[in-house]
């Protein structure tokens, strides 16, 4: 096999908003297929902006983004093949769980029946079997987030982008969803880019942690995480985990110039 080609490389990417704010400056980042990358930093460091750039929801003001393996559509645009999980579950309140999960497939032109069959599989995989006909308002916050994850994965995307998806959940629910996410990733090996402001969450989940610094948003440091193949409660309480949390914590505070925030 030829040397592995990156999924996406960003070179010197900057983003300046119309208001003049420089949200990101000189971002160089290479993402390999199957990576689990955490973007870690305080609010205002541009990590969400970076995620939106990768998703194609906004375009860079400078620099290049290359997708060496991606297909191009008729208009010459990159077919990004992305699933996105927002900070809020972002479900359609007027549609039940299965209609919500089937949405991306139907938008791509799949027949309703087939789309719902596939949606049902993913609903089962996120442990929501039996809730297909429930409306979002009848579900708890954690369950809504599971629906959101099922919807992001139903198209079997190459990349899963997650923007602080569990930040609004209680700790117990967050731990459980962390475990489920790691498990899904181990099975499917899609690429994950996960935005978080939690050191503990990033070390628990990611293989690579990209530490970002604010004003303007830039990459300060990258930390590789070594962890057993099976991450679980054992890893969460191990000395290795604690040591790596300390390393990342130090990297984060030096990225912020030692400032107390």
């Amino acid at each position: 096999m030829s040397p592995r080609r990156p999924l996406l490389s960003l070179t010197g990417v900057s983003k300046r908003y119309a208001t003049g704010t420089l949200a990101l400056e000189g971002i160089d980042l290479t993402i390999m297929p199957g990576d689990f990358i955490a973007l870690l930093g305080p609010s205002g460091c541009g990590k969400s902006t970076l995620l939106r750039l990768i998703a194609g929801l906004t375009s860079p003001s400078a620099g290049t983004m290359e997708w060496p393996m991606a297909m191009h559509d008729a208009a010459g645009e990159v077919e990004r093949d992305i699933g996105f999980v927002f900070q809020e579950p972002t479900l359609m309140p007027w549609a039940n769980v299965i209609r919500n999960v089937a949405l991306p497939l139907e938008l791509a032109g799949m027949k309703r029946r087939e789309a719902e069959e596939r949606a049902a599989e993913w609903i089962a995989r996120v442990d929501l079997k039996g809730f297909e006909k429930a409306y979002p308002r009848a579900l708890s916050g954690g369950m809504r987030m599971r629906v959101s994850i099922a919807r992001a994965l139903v198209t079997r995307p190459r990349i899963l982008l997650m923007d602080e998806p569990f930040a609004a959940l209680d700790e117990i629910t967050r731990f459980r969803l962390n475990n489920d996410l790691v498990q899904l990733w181990a099975q499917e090996r899609f690429t994950v880019i996960f935005v978080t402001h939690s050191v503990f969450e990033s070390v628990y989940l990611a293989e690579r942690i990209v530490v970002m610094a604010p004003r303007p948003g830039r990459i300060a440091e990258e930390v590789a995480i070594t962890a057993p193949a099976e991450r679980g409660e054992e890893f969460r309480t191990s000395p290795e985990y604690a040591a790596q949390c300390r390393t990342v914590s130090l990297a984060l505070s030096s990225a912020m110039g030692g400032a107390h925030e």
Partner: peptide
């Protein structure tokens, strides 16, 4: 919801799909 709008954009929904599946139900 602006996040839902982004979601539809992400999946390259047509204007018609955005109208019938997002805007009209929101406006109901």
């Amino acid at each position: 919801d602006h996040n839902l709008k982004d979601l539809f954009k992400l999946y390259r929904a047509s204007r018609w799909q955005v109208l019938t599946r997002l805007l009209l139900p929101s406006a109901l």
